[in-house]
Nucleic acid binder design. Structure first.
Lengths: 357, 357
DNA sequence: GAGCGCGTTGGTAACGTTATCAATCCTGCC
DNA sequence: GGCAGGATTGATAACGTTACCAACGCGCTC
């Protein structure tokens, strides 16, 4: 069922039927009614593909995140989809799994689909693929992560400052053995990153940790920085090892969801008492942080707003806003709960559980 | 940059350039090379919109769920997107918020977009909008929920059986005061559903609960069925009220994520000891269920497989499979952890915390 | 040497909409 | 009564690709 069909059935010209059905131009009340009636009778539905063909717009946004299953990205996607829907756009989703090749392939597909805009949480460290999108006339907004050197709108939080402030609470409470656990992919040893695994967010958070230590005059020690990879179980075993080592840390900062989960797994397995044996602060609040005892203190970020703002900027760009791309930094909040305390007088020996293979 | 441009630049006919770039038909190695070189030089990228225009396929799936932010749907969407991506399709996402009007609007949009297939977790109780999609040649697969009377492929778990089995563990342990908490919208009192809020999944789970009671010869009592609405805080206050009432339940079954979260909030606020004061089983395992003490016993469902299977069926339909639509039921697993125990000898009086406004 | 078949090539129609422009109708006014 | 001017109408081009078909050249066979 196409416009010519409806036009014939209503006894009007194609162009007239098209105007009524497309809601543009003018038509008399009488013809409008006849066309609408004919359309209803024939079960006509607009072909958005043909419309996009000529209008040049597809009313879609491409969204590339690491993994929707991750609560952080799920919330961000929700924020994007909500704002997009309000503007009549829909979101097409792609998961990169932090793999820059997958990300590039997804972006290429989005360019071919002629999406109206692109929200990307970049795993890649270069922006060639994104520049291609921009030069194809597709505005791009970066989410969660800055890409240095790329002239793109970017929506982030002040990761470095937030972590510095949080870790400073540790140092002010007297902690000097403070470890940081991330779920970035480790290189040879766990204290360095695998090539290509330098996600901006993680790097910034570790930098904030370093700044806090330096400000407190605490010498840095490499073995307290643990990159554990994107599986919860890997974070668990890294922390298990860390916490049973000689001169173990008395405070842990986890830079993300997965690291936090694995870290708590380990502490539970070790029967470590929080905060008596070890203090913990996590990055990013989750639905379960008030369900555990003690409740987990966290750095909370406005994730859904982050996504919403990204979509908002994109929509403005799509409708022609030409301002210089800039970085938008949203505020984080430190939520003090009960997982932090003073340095234990004597560090109790923790025993790793027997591992079952 | 279009095919005619590339053709001109390469000094070949349009059709020849089109064949090389579209990867169909035949072309000599020499011309292929020339065309590809010209395309690269001009920065040509296929226009998928134009391709869809004539091929009739858009290589997209429409996905309608209640809310991606909900871990259940996030996992399902991930399953769908993975299988789709493997087949060269991308997923367009729409959130219905359990609102059947939003769902219908989203489906209509998807029809206009000419998506190749549709995965829907229906909030609506009729299937008129879905029938429209089918008659427009778009195959539809239902996810998580059955729509009685609709001849559509459906991917679900045996909710009734799973809940019956779980609740039977309560009855076998001697519990007789067993409550069920759902996050369906309540009607006038909390024990009935609001009009239009009868989501199949919830109804089935409550039916399973009823069957288990009947099988154990326990008379049903309406005040033990609580529909609390889709906000965690609402589940909390309902449980607060329930657990401080006379003759309170000694076992709680929560039918979903949100209800489980709110229920645990309430029990924590009441200082209720699990399972000494009250036993708890939840539906659907979450990442935090092993993080709380005692660990939460749950009915676990293969959510990602559910989504993957839905996408799989859809893809088969798209490539022409004509078998009669049927229901696919995946298995759930009961995971026994530590949140269940025998009936307390004497029910300890629980005190509601002072509410702060 | 003519004919046949196959790989290659190019011209052109088609997909279903919106955009453009000219033609027509109607109304109000001088 | 004639005419200006706006509202309404319809024919047709255009978007960029794939589908279709005819034409060409080459090697091979009879």
């Amino acid at each position: 069922m196409t416009i010519p069909d409806v036009a014939r059935h209503a006894g009007v010209g194609q162009a007239t039927a098209a105007r009524v059905l497309g809601g543009y131009g003018s038509a008399s009340a009488a013809t409008r009614e006849r066309v609408l009636a004919a359309a209803a009778e024939l079960g006509y539905s607009t072909n958005a593909v043909a419309r996009s063909m000529i209008s040049g717009r597809t009313d879609t946004l491409g969204v590339v995140v690491a993994d929707v299953e991750n609560a952080y990205f799920a919330r961000a996607v929700r924020g994007i989809a909500d704002v997009a829907a309000k503007a009549g756009l829909q979101a097409i989703l792609a998961n990169s799994d932090e793999d820059s090749e997958k990300e590039k392939a997804a972006v290429q597909l989005f360019i071919e689909r002629r999406v109206d805009g692109l929200v990307v949480a970049p795993a890649a460290t270069d922006d060639e693929h994104l520049a291609r999108a921009v030069s194809a006339g597709i505005p791009v907004v970066l989410l969660d992560r800055v890409l240095t050197g790329a002239a793109l709108d970017t929506v982030v939080v002040d990761n470095r400052g937030a972590v510095k402030a949080a870790v400073t609470r540790f140092t002010e409470a007297g902690h000097t053995r403070i470890a940081v656990i991330t779920s970035a992919m480790p290189g040879d040893d766990g204290t360095r990153l695998a090539p290509g695994a330098d996600i901006w967010t993680t790097t910034e958070r570790v930098a904030g940790y370093r700044q806090a230590l330096r400000a407190a005059g605490i010498p840095r020690s490499a073995e307290l920085i643990r990159h554990t990879g994107y599986e919860r179980a890997w974070a668990r075993s890294a922390v298990l090892e860390l916490m049973t080592s000689r001169d173990r840390p008395t405070a842990l900062f986890t830079t993300d969801n997965v690291a936090t989960l694995g870290t708590l797994d380990a502490l539970l397995d070790l029967d470590a008492r929080i905060p008596d044996d070890v203090s913990v602060i996590g990055f990013d609040d989750a639905e379960w942080t008030t369900l555990i005892r003690p409740r987990l203190s966290v750095v909370s970020q406005p994730v859904q707003e982050l996504g919403g703002l990204a979509a908002d900027i994109l929509i403005r760009r799509i409708s022609g806003a030409a301002a210089r791309p800039r970085r938008h930094t949203l505020n984080t909040t430190y939520i003090a709960r009960e997982s932090t305390g003073p340095v234990p007088a004597r560090t109790r020996r923790l025993r790793a559980p027997a591992e079952c293979p």
